[in-house]
């Protein structure tokens, strides 16, 4: 097999590649100063809108609110992947007469006060055994990994062919005392019965 092209061709392609390399270097040194600042990906823009929507389709036990006007709190544990998108999604919107507040929290202890807790992909290991506790406190837990679903989280985002989907663990929802609207259940991706 002719692994090395013959002499003349090597020389030609050599010069060609010198030019390429220079082009490459130029490109590298020039614009590197820009970059970095990226808008929130569409995935999280969509997920933010989903989170807002979930709050419309879930009924919490009345004792979860101090009064009829007290807001719904959506908490994000750990790194906030939403940027300002979650704030933007709920700004000025009311759900059953309640406003919505977004809180970015560092510690799990702060989560009990929220109605909705979003757990970003790499934060789920921090949950440990506390999911059941959170559910007992009536928190709608939302995650985005298979591990989160396996741990018993209530709603888990999935991606299917480039679209955002979600699974609902109905049993976990019931244990949290939440009434999940039948329409939302219907839209959810079916979870394997045996699991």
């Amino acid at each position: 097999m002719d692994l090395i092209p013959q002499g003349t061709r090597v020389r030609k392609s050599g010069r060609f590649f010198t030019v390429l390399l220079w082009l490459g270097l130029l490109a590298l040194t020039g614009p590197a100063a820009f970059g970095a600042d990226h808008a929130v990906s569409k995935e999280y823009q969509l997920k933010a809108a989903f989170l807002y929507n979930f709050s419309k389709f879930v009924q919490w036990p009345p004792e979860r609110f101090t009064d009829e006007k007290s807001p719904i709190v959506i908490a994000v544990l750990g790194d906030n992947p939403f940027g300002d998108e979650l704030e933007n999604a709920v700004r000025g919107r009311l759900v059953n007469g309640r406003s919505i507040i977004i809180k970015i929290i560092d510690r799990l202890e702060q989560a009990g006060a929220a109605q909705v807790l979003f757990v970003e992909a790499k934060e789920e290991r921090r949950l440990g055994d506390s999911l059941a506790l959170l559910h007992r406190a009536g928190v709608l837990t939302v995650g985005e990994t298979r591990q989160f679903a396996a741990m018993g989280g209530i709603i888990t985002f999935t991606l299917a062919e480039d679209k955002v989907r979600f699974e609902i663990n109905q049993l976990a929802g019931e244990q949290a005392g939440l009434k999940i609207n039948a329409q939302l259940l219907k839209l959810a991706t079916p979870v394997r019965k045996s699991s």
């Binding site: 990906s41 969509l46 989903f50 999604a89 955002v164 839209l187």
Partner: peptide
């Protein structure tokens, strides 16, 4: 805004610019 969309509509949006 996406928040104006229904869940069905959100489910039809593709995630085209996910970092």
């Amino acid at each position: 805004s996406f928040a104006d969309l229904s869940i069905e509509e959100l489910m039809n949006e593709t995630v085209t610019s996910v970092s």
